[in-house]
Design a protein around this nucleic acid. Structure first.
Lengths: 150, 150
DNA sequence: CCTTGACCCTGTAGTGGCTACAGGGTGTGT
DNA sequence: ACACACCCTGTAGCCACTACAGGGTCAAGG
């Protein structure tokens, strides 16, 4: 199987697959006479594993750790559990942050009906107010999960 | 006021302020004889506006739009409302995504008590399963808000 | 006067996880 | 013979910073 077919099968881009290879997540496959990458079922499975983890928003570093267990089936797996728990905590923290954000935005939105000039707009007024201590984003809790933009 | 004091006052780093200047969000201030940036109250207010928006997880591009209204108080402000609504929709979409993720992770986590070898670990087994159609991340809905890692 | 140390300057490179070229080669169908 | 889809490598861009390197400035203390 060539890279294009693997990309279609896995639902990710050709360039992404090459990127995973550069990053050491996918082993370098054999090459055809024309220097085309030739993938087998093992590669497809490993890529599925990676995509599954990415769909759960894990970092490539976390995935590297999980792949190490995948590759060493004799090891005890409790660290796997710890990794998932930690990731779950990150996700939960990010959800709480975004919900606080949502509340703040709803409050902000209610300050203007859109019929004023910018001068009088309650939203712009509110945004000009300096931030209070409690409104600063908490850098500790959500560490390593991105914000609202994907 | 020099850049360090402005940084302390606004709660962001010195380098971030210089970055906002490069990006055109903050106007270039006057310089002292020693070529130090000299800020006044106007700069502090504008930076507070920017930090307030960033605390609400808006992009610099969105902030640029809002600043344009800030700078032209005679304009009608309904576009401001639209921007906030759109941003709110992004945040709400991201929350839904992360909640789905959380559910998936909780399910995954329940598959192993951490006492197996990796070979038998239900988590690793589950991750090796190819993704179903419905498990693919939806690239449309959450566009422009980041995922779980910050 | 000299040193220490905090602050400031510019410019460049790195982060993560891709994505998008440029500039070339290969393989298949008509 | 040609078009066109596919493949290759390598590099640069995305966002919002962050972290240097390598230098200049300034006030306090000895």
């Amino acid at each position: 199987m060539r890279i294009g077919e693997l990309a279609r099968q896995s639902g990710c881009g050709v360039e992404t697959i090459r990127y995973y290879e550069r990053e050491g997540l996918l082993p370098a496959p054999a090459r055809s006479a024309a220097n085309y990458r030739q993938y087998g079922e093992r590669h497809a499975e490993r890529l599925a594993f990676i995509r599954h983890c990415r769909a759960l928003d894990m970092t490539l570093e976390e995935i590297r750790t999980l792949l190490a267990y995948h590759d060493h089936p004799e090891r005890p797996c409790h660290e796997v559990n710890g990794l998932i728990d930690a990731h779950l905590a990150h996700v939960a923290a990010r959800i709480r942050q975004l919900q606080a954000l949502e509340t703040a935005l709803v409050t902000l939105r209610a300050r203007c009906n859109g019929e004023s000039e910018a001068e009088a707009c309650g939203i712009l007024r509110e945004l000009s107010r300096p931030l209070g201590e409690d409104e600063l984003p908490d850098p500790g809790e959500g560490a390593h999960l991105p914000g609202a933009h994907g």
